[in-house]
């Protein structure tokens, strides 16, 4: 009984892994285009808040280059990193708006 359950879990996990891999391989150009537009909007927002990070634009540029070479997996990973950076930068801006005054020497 326990063995049956274990086998079921193993097969289910394997199926999910394969499914995930397949879906990652099936990133479409449309999905990439949509993702990079979203990531670039976030980058712009972090810039409007005076908190854009140094390498975010470079990551997006590299993502675009990877996509142009047909490596959409790499491109999506770079977009995800850029998106993460921009979200973190926006969080930083919001956090710092509250915290900076606490550092003023008094």
């Amino acid at each position: 009984m326990i063995m049956k359950k274990l086998i079921t879990i193993i097969f289910t996990a394997a199926a999910l892994t394969v499914g995930g891999t397949v879906s990652a391989e099936q990133v479409s150009v449309e999905q990439f285009n949509s993702a990079i537009v979203e990531a670039n909007e976030l980058r712009k927002k972090s810039g409007e808040l005076d908190h854009e990070w140094r390498d975010t634009a470079k990551l997006l540029k590299s993502a675009q280059a990877a996509a142009s070479e047909g490596d959409l997996d790499k491109a999506m990973k770079l977009v995800a990193e850029a998106k993460f950076q921009s979200e973190a930068a926006i969080n930083q801006a919001e956090r710092e708006a509250r915290l900076w005054e606490g550092r003023v020497v008094r």
């Binding site: 005076d50 908190h51 990070w53 140094r54 390498d55 950076q85 973190a88 930083q92 710092e96 915290l99 900076w100 005054e101 550092r103 003023v104 020497v105």
Partner: peptide, 21 residues
């Protein structure tokens, strides 16, 4: 200018004051 000086920024999360105060 004061806000800029004391505000952490960048991936390393440093303000001017972190290093120079």
């Amino acid at each position: 200018g004061k806000k800029f000086y004391y505000t952490k920024r960048g991936q390393l999360n440093f303000s001017c004051s972190d290093c120079h105060i």
